[in-house]
Design a binder for these strands. Structure first.
Lengths: 202, 202
DNA sequence: CTTAATATGTACTAAGTGGTAAGTAACCCT
DNA sequence: AGGGTTACTTACCACTTAGTACATATTAAG
């Protein structure tokens, strides 16, 4: 058997780095949304031609979905690490402050591509929209499970409605994405984060 | 001088009602966003041909802006009436519960066209995006002014940061629009509304 | 050096985009 | 009945869209 993986497969080698190209595509989708992004936008940003794009990523829709995966696995991702905090309050705290820093970070497009990539969209983007909705619901589901665990651990009172708590937190996080698009600064979002924590049971 | 107004102007009379056509256009823009809506989508929904659309509304962009005006002046609009409530808390309360009912209302597209009409978009939609951002900021500005009045009236403690309060409320309202797009029910949003009021100073 | 395999650039397709020209139909006023 | 004015219908425009055929270039293996 021959070696598998990225080490010199037969044929002409790819002239671009697939990961940095995906990063470029992500940035365009993030700024312009799925409907607002054309293939020319993508090939221009990625520095490749259309046949290379189609060979490497399938088509526009699959490229988008791969870009979303990349987005969620970024080093600056704040969601999953926050879930690991010891108490429910700290989970919420880290998630809110992480979002405040991340969504208004001037080094990248404002907001969150999972929220604004295909919110209202054409029929051509219906599958993409659905995929994004599912991602958002999964995130909220993870919060819900974390808060139920906190109830089981006695960290949250048994009387707490974990579902509403998770949905409230999801609402604030998603609202922060819009605020970032409105031009809100990280500092402003931090103050919003602090205030929204006042509703959190201790 | 002849009579002005809608009473029999010269020429062939318009064969469609301009207001109901605008209502149809609004619904399409609301569901599909500016970039996701084509002129064919619009003419199909409005039941007219392109030249009629252009004669009556200018072009796609102007039609969108007129549709937004219509949206904000709807009978079901909850924003402005809520501002008139006697106390800051009641203002927030009515706004949040109004949003919960409105944004998840199954008789219309989910969410809010001012938020999702052109969040991430193409360069062709840049002017529209800017117009929507301004509308959102104006709404928040109105909230801020209302809360500052409440402070002056002694209804809110002088120590309250009215700006953050307004921004927090804006964040929750905008987050509710995303939640509605995720499929949240009016009841779920009501629980979120109730919870977000816990952060509100009394 | 040839062959097989993959990537590349150029050029193309069919369909859809926003927007318009031009002829015709319907109305009011004289 | 005719003229003036407006709206409607049909057909079109130039351009962009997502996606692809094809010939060429670059590599590894035999």
């Amino acid at each position: 058997m021959s070696a598998v993986g990225s080490s010199s497969p037969v044929g002409r080698p790819r002239a671009f780095d697939i990961d940095t190209a995906l990063e470029k595509a992500l940035e365009v989708f993030w700024r312009k949304g799925y409907d607002g992004t054309s293939l020319s936008d993508l090939t221009d940003a990625m520095g490749i031609n259309k046949p290379s794009l189609y060979a490497a990523f399938g088509n526009k829709e699959q490229l988008f979905l791969k870009a979303i995966e990349k987005y969620e696995s970024r080093p600056c991702a704040f969601f999953m690490p926050a879930l690991e905090k010891p108490t429910a309050y700290e989970v919420a705290e880290h998630m809110l402050y992480g979002a405040a820093a991340n969504m208004a970070n001037k080094d990248q497009p404002q907001g969150c591509v999972v929220i604004q990539g295909a919110l209202s969209c054409s029929e051509a983007a219906a599958a993409v929209k659905e995929a994004l909705i599912n991602r958002r619901l999964e995130g909220q589901q993870k919060l819900l499970q974390r808060f139920e665990r906190a109830k089981a651990e006695g960290d949250l009172p048994a009387s707490v409605d974990a579902e509403t708590l998770a949905q409230y937190l999801g609402t604030v996080l998603q609202g922060m994405a819009i605020q970032a698009n409105n031009g809100a600064t990280p500092e402003q979002l931090q103050r919003v984060a602090k205030m929204s924590l006042l509703a959190f049971p201790r």
